[in-house]
Amino acid sequence: MSNAVELKGLNKAFDGIKAVNNLSLEVEEGSIFGFLGPNGAGKTTTIKIMLGLIKQDSGTANLLGYDTGQDILKIKKKVGYVAEIDHLYGYMKVREILEFNQGFYNNWDSSLVEKYNKFFKLPLDKKIKELSRGMKKQLSLILAMASNPELLILDEPTSGLDPINRQEILRIILEEISVKGRTVFFSTHLLGDVERIADSVAIINRGRLLEQSLLDDLKSEIKKIRVVFQKEPDPDVLSLPGIDNYTQDRNAYIISVSKNLNQILKKLEQEPHFSLDVIEQNLEDIFIDKVGDDKDEI
């Protein structure tokens, strides 16, 4: 299976401050990729490099087999993009911007545009600056999908939307892009959305990659174990590979595990204990742990 996105050793600094720091990641074709990070982590900068909107200081970005440095026009024909902050011309009417965009693409899908204009009930004769925030996002999404992109890049597509709007947008992305086997790259700090639809996720902070994994693997592997021993445990079991750290209150321990869960459980079970249970970690727990830990290394 080939990759729709390949970033290798990307670096970008603004005024000496590293916004993107030696970032490498891969997104498999046909998957939904969640690009996660707190505000200011470097998500938008990375996306802008991928689209050729800004130039990296070093490293390479490859989309759909094309290098952004050499073939940006080919990339733009095959990639749809919804920006975080609306970049639509406010003075144009909805109808006008749809016609204007159509001129740039050979494979413009008028029936899709019509379908979603009706679905969202967009007022075609209103000026864009008069639209609500939700409507602007909806219009951006229609514009990005209308060229039948092989890769859809979304920068915070659901932020600022109400839950119904958010769910609608996710469903449309699934229906128009994913079930057709195309790739979605989407950045967000709204973890619930990623938890619903992503195959794989990357977590970045301060421009650096903290984690990249299949979401199911992440959830299957990262757990906390709460155990109350009957006496001091063998110190070896607390340093088994896969144990990241633990906290202790007398004989009660909470052990953070990121790998080898089953082996660790087997060893712990052999120690005399009163109770032993596994605490499931959802994406938000995992995210807060990873990003929180990252701050201590400064």
Partner: peptide, 8 residues
């Protein structure tokens, strides 16, 4: 689509 989850 019904559950709004990834088809994969």
């Amino acid at each position: 689509l019904k559950l709004t989850v990834n088809p994969n």
